[in-house]
Design a protein around this nucleic acid. Structure first.
Length: 566
RNA sequence: GCCGCCAUAGCUCAGCUGGUAGAGCACCUGAUUUGUAAUCAGGGGGUCGGGGGUUCGAGUCCCUCUGGCGGCACCA
């Protein structure tokens, strides 16, 4: 780098999953065209098989050396190394690099199965108040074959991108005037509604109640809740002609406290599990929106559990079990669970935070879940358990969440009358399983690559005719399938059956029902399932019964079995 | 918000060093009535993301705005 682009400072360059990156500070910004030049020079260095020699330097000498050659970032790293830490410097020819090591004995050992992939910006030490460096991402493998296989994997994963599939399957779109705002098309909205219906059944079955609260409330309301102070940047604010300043709700929690506070609550009422699926708006920064996975307008499968201290662990455990069951029904696998600890910007006392963090961890343990503690990531009102899922290219996204909150009930003066006849504060558990429905659907689209299981598929059956002689019968078939509760469509276009099969297969319709003269005469249909080329011929009535049963959501299927109550 | 890249027909994309837009699919029309992953022929369709500039001339060069992509920061 420093030979090709004199004056470039180098900073850190760790290995990451499937490769590495290097953060550098060039004199003039690099562009994509520079990567091949760098790669070519890398290959020369590998060919030269130069020795990499470890040396230990004294702290002052190392700092002085790197400062003298203009490597201020390296000097800063050394200054911040703890006292007593050995300072290792690797020598390659007359080039010196600060690195903890270990290194291979010589550059030839690296091999040539590597590729520089992309340029990105990255703040020095991850702090946006620092200078922005340029980050070069690359991948490296033992053999050319492994490299090719990796590149192929990435290419395949990109085909599962929910934005690409969403367009191809006509599920949704986003347009310039509504950055981060989803226009759900009929098929996408069908999927959405199907998932909402499922979530409603699951929570109603375990004692939740559902409410609906206002979208826009006055500034004073958000001041009371604390959102105006801690969350103002992310709220959409508007003003009426009469001068009232209003903000669109970014969360339901303060609204739910209003319902809780309406009238007097008894300990006998607790826990109250209050759910809401209304839309939320968050003014996310311009660089952060991302298809369905990070939006500015969404709905959450949101609920707040108001309970007494003694109920926290039990409620938390029950929630985690529900979440596991829901994820299993959707066929997705948890990537990781994180316990996000107190952030700098927070309300509440340290004592409250400590109790809250410990309780969440205990509940996770009881539910048999390993958590990874991450500092400084909690919500301003409480710590949270974050349930992360992976997208097609391996990025992880927080979907489910469980947050323990002592702060909001206090700020908004929520109380109940306990056994002792005194007012007590309830605790709030903020919880969501899908998180944002938009995000969860995005993850699901990538997970299934658009080929949804029957119960989720926006179109479950397409009835395709072979000749126009079968049109009338095909209409009967569709009516009957629809009457049986199936999402069926008809294709009577003047096209060959091959054409129709191909098109509906590419559209990921799980079942194609082919009808020709024979079927019309015998009142049968020939079913062809996505991914197979076998067909089964069934009487129309039988087919309706079979498919209806097959299309049950997992929870409905469990309930339908007499010996297995849901 | 920051760094790099990108924006051409409904979709996917081509258009070399500036000479005034092209393919496939889709759509429409006609023919074909078809048995399990693309029937044939014809036709319509683009102020080349917006604005400004350089030039005799800009899809192509420059500036700027908007949006997208990959990261970083942020993420209740």
């Amino acid at each position: 780098m420093q030979e090709l682009f004199p004056g470039t400072q180098i900073t850190i360059g760790p290995n990451i999953e499937d490769g590495f990156f290097y953060d550098i500070a060039p004199q003039t910004p690099l562009s994509l065209e520079d990567l091949p030049k760098i790669e070519a020079r890398m290959r020369e260095i590998v060919d030269s098989d130069a020795a990499l020699v470890r040396e230990e330097w004294a702290r002052d000498a190392a700092i002085a050396h790197f400062k003298s050659i203009g490597e201020h970032y390296k000097a800063e790293i050394i200054s911040d190394l703890p006292e007593g830490e050995p300072i290792s410097v690797y020598r390659t020819g007359d080039w010196l690099d600060l690195c903890r090591g270990p290194h291979m004995p010589s550059t030839g050992k690296v091999g040539k199965a590597f590729k520089l992939l992309k340029l990105a910006g990255a703040y020095w030490r991850g702090d946006h108040t620092n200078a922005m460096l340029q980050r070069i991402y690359g991948t490296a493998w033992r053999t050319e074959e492994e490299l090719a296989a990796y590149l192929h994997r990435v290419e395949e994963a990109e085909k599962r991108d929910h934005r690409r599939i969403g367009k191809a399957m006509d599920l949704f779109h986003i347009q310039e005037e509504g950055k981060g705002m989803i226009f759900w098309h009929p098929k996408g909205w069908t999927l959405y509604r199907t998932m909402l219906a499922y979530m409603r059944r699951r929570i109603e079955a375990v004692g939740y109640v559902e409410v609906k609260t206002p979208q826009i409330l006055e500034q004073s309301f958000w001041e009371k809740s604390g959102h105006w102070e801690k969350f103002h940047d992310s709220m959409f604010v508007c003003e009426t002609d009469e001068g009232e300043v209003m903000a669109v709700k970014p969360m339901n929690c303060p609204c739910h406290v209003q319902i809780f506070n309406h009238g007097q609550r008894s300990y006998r009422d607790l826990p109250i599990r209050m759910a809401e699926f209304e839309g939320l708006h968050r003014c996310e920064s311009s660089g952060s929106t991302h298809g369905l996975l990070r939006v500015r307008q969404m709905s959450q499968d949101d609920a707040h559990i108001f309970c007494a201290d003694a109920q926290i662990v039990e409620e938390s455990k029950a929630f985690i079990e529900l979440l596991n069951s829901v994820y299993a029904d959707f066929g997705v696998e948890l990537h990781s669970v994180k316990l996000a600890l107190r952030p700098d910007k927070r309300f509440g006392t340290d004592a409250q935070w400590t109790i809250a963090e410990d309780q969440l961890e205990e509940a996770a343990h009881l539910a048999g879940i390993e958590v990874e503690r991450i500092a400084n990531e909690g919500a301003f009102y409480g710590p949270k358990l974050e349930f992360h899922l992976r997208d097609a290219i391996g990025r992880t996204w927080q979907c489910g969440t469980l947050q323990l909150d002592y702060v909001l009930p206090e700020r908004l003066d929520a109380s109940y009358i306990a056994e002792d006849g005194q007012k007590h504060r309830p605790v709030m558990l903020h919880r969501a399983i899908c998180g944002s429905m938009e995000r969860f659907i995005g993850v699901l689209i990538e997970h299934f690559a658009g080929a949804f299981p029957l119960w989720l598929a926006p179109v479950q059956v397409t009835v395709a005719t072979i000749t126009s002689d079968a049109d009338a019968y095909a209409r009967d078939v569709v009516s009957q399938l629809r009457a049986a509760g199936l999402r069926a469509e008809i294709d009577v276009r003047n096209e060959k059956i091959n054409y129709k099969i191909r098109e509906h297969s590419l559209a990921k319709v799980p079942i194609i029902a082919v009808v020709g003269r024979k079927e019309a005469e015998q009142r049968t249909i020939a079913l062809r399932r996505l991914g197979g080329d076998a067909q089964s011929i069934l009487a129309l009535d039988d087919a309706c019964a079979v498919l209806t049963k097959e299309a049950l959501a997992p929870d409905e299927a469990r309930r339908a079995k007499p010996d297995h109550p849901a």
